[in-house]
Design a protein around this nucleic acid. Structure first.
Lengths: 335, 335
DNA sequence: ATCGGTTACGAAATCGTTTAAGTTCATGAT
DNA sequence: ATCATGAACTTAAACGATTTCGTAACCGAT
């Protein structure tokens, strides 16, 4: 391994000068610096992140917390897209990405300790139980963090605009003539709360009442739960004319139930999803859904976090709401 | 931050003794060690991976190379499952996971240099272009590596048993009476080669000839390509009775074409997929497919890599073939 | 009393880099 | 001629751990 000392010896300068040349500091002669850099290249030098981190306290490494309650975190297109784009952006800005988990090996480290152990400059938090004390400890620590789809008031957060999303969907199906709208919602999370509130409010603003039995609990990314909920809706005397699913993937479960019941989509039942995953646009009929801009969210998370890391003084917690867009498929009939 | 020195001072011992106590070395008194550990706990000490790595040369960190030609790497359930399970296993064994990419920031590091820069103890390589010189450089370096679904003769590899998978699928549809079998295959990769070879061989063994026009190129994870290929097959005078798709996801494209053509699955056309992703079991009719054991593959990759890292002397390159299992859905008709 | 062998600990070097605090020397101002 | 200034380097001390070697103390055996 080529070290600064090797280059220093070859160039007849001190290690300090080599370091300065490599890092482009100002107090080094232009020619000397160039000569040193040229020699370094020739000798096949590349820096040692570990030594650099130890001395400087900065690792150029961001952690990601991506714990998966439902075992579907990474398998979920929405989250994997966020991760993928956050990774690309972080790399573009010169940072690597390391997964932060609890309890690596046998050491009982929590998230905060793990992040410190690896000297992460910051942490991106997504798809976790945000009420977990370990998550709260991390968020309240001195380590910069950015949360996705959850807001802590002292931190920057990137949230998909669930209010607007739900509003647009409701308005859309309303414009198609629907008044009896059912909503199969996901498990109790802040995202669900926001969507539900927006659902109720938009309906109220439009002057449509929603029967209590039209709002049923399902689960995100869970076609089976959606199937069960769909069956319940079909058993009602006064059936809805349109069903909102927790997300595109869970809609598959509902789709099967509807087809088995001999109901054609959208002629006998209209449906909408949420997420805008690739699959939804491959199904026939194409699903009407609200596409969240996961790519932008991931990029923005990385950008904001690194901004916070590199300019801690002029940083203020921001709440960034990312709009998506309604994708008009063919699953909502004009009535 | 609490350091070894702080603990040493508090305990009135040397830093060396603290290190020994923490790491459970033998040349330290039992009681002293216990006392030191207790004090360390009280003081809220946790080690600094960076310093440890710098001195010891071991980072307890493995890199993953997960480059995405098709932009679908992480979005692909198969690969995200592999990653997820490799991550869990690595963590269980005391290792963290860092993504290794080319060209972090503006430095022109290749994969090998990047891995060295971060002092990765080993690298898991999946879903990349294995003929990329940068990948080959990494694989031929002194850094332990494990490859997934690709074999280098000097390295351990974990490959899904594509030969057996294809064989079982062909035998299955043969047993259902099919003789005119079409195969829409993925892009040219070693996996495709293996599946194709097995497809032809199994058909030959069964004594069925395959018309050249029954074998068409599609793409992995690409419903549109599958749709186009499916249309071509439907235009044939002598249509196949069963179509093999590159994978479950791309089958969606074919499914739409078949339905639009008024062909019912499996009554008018039988189909099989590959992968066994969650979606395939949610569709109706349930897709007949070959489920790859992605979870085991990821775990095994981590296990093997860490074995190689920790016992380099008694290590030999291994090629581990992981069988999957046929999932009998309802998309193949008995004829 | 001496010797060899453990056991338990400490001193000090080391990993590769960064950086605060000098030092040297030429330059220009007074 | 003197002195402040600044550019260009060097020195040396960190950063937090690990690890080799050394040594003191104690044990039992001769």
């Amino acid at each position: 391994m080529v070290t600064l000392a090797d280059i220093a010896k070859r160039c007849n300068v001190s290690r300090a000068s080599v370091s300065k040349a490599i890092n482009g500091h100002s107090d080094i002669g232009k020619e000397t610096a160039e000569f040193i850099r040229k020699t370094a290249r020739e000798m096949g030098y590349y820096p040692n992140a570990t030594a650099r981190t130890l001395k400087s306290g900065r690792s150029q490494n961001v952690g990601v917390l991506f714990v998966d309650k439902t075992q579907s975190g990474l398998a979920h297109e929405y989250f994997s897209k966020i991760l993928e784009s956050a990774k690309s952006m972080a790399e573009k800005l010169g940072y690597d990405i390391t997964f932060i988990s609890r309890d690596i090996g046998t050491t009982g480290m929590d998230f905060y300790e793990h992040a410190k152990y690896r000297q992460c400059d910051g942490v991106i938090i997504a798809s976790v139980d945000f009420e977990d004390p370990a998550v709260i400890k991390l968020v309240n620590s001195e380590i910069p963090t950015v949360t996705l789809d959850y807001v802590f008031n002292n931190r920057t957060s990137i949230v998909s605009d669930n209010v607007k999303g739900m509003e647009e969907l409701v308005n859309y199906v309303y414009s198609k003539g629907h008044r009896k709208i059912a909503y199969i919602h996901g498990e109790e999370t802040s995202v669900t709360q926001r969507r539900m509130a927006s659902f109720y409010k938009t309906c109220a603003d439009l002057g449509i009442g929603i029967k209590p039995e039209y709002v049923i609990r399902g689960d995100y990314h869970n076609p089976k739960a959606a199937a069960i909920a769909t069956r319940k809706l079909l058993e009602l005397n006064d059936r809805p004319t349109c069903i909102f699913y927790p997300d595109d993937f869970s809609y598959i479960g509902g789709m099967n139930v509807l087809e088995k019941a001999g109901l054609s989509i959208p002629d006998d039942m209209s449906v909408v999803g949420y997420d805008g995953i690739l699959l939804s646009q491959m199904l026939r009929p194409k699903l009407t859904t609200y596409q969240q801009d996961a790519t932008f969210m991931g990029e923005e998370a990385a950008r904001q976090l690194i901004e916070n890391i590199e300019h801690p003084t002029l940083w203020l917690p921001k709440q960034i709401t990312v709009p998506g867009k309604l994708i008009e498929g063919s699953t909502v009939k004009q009535i």
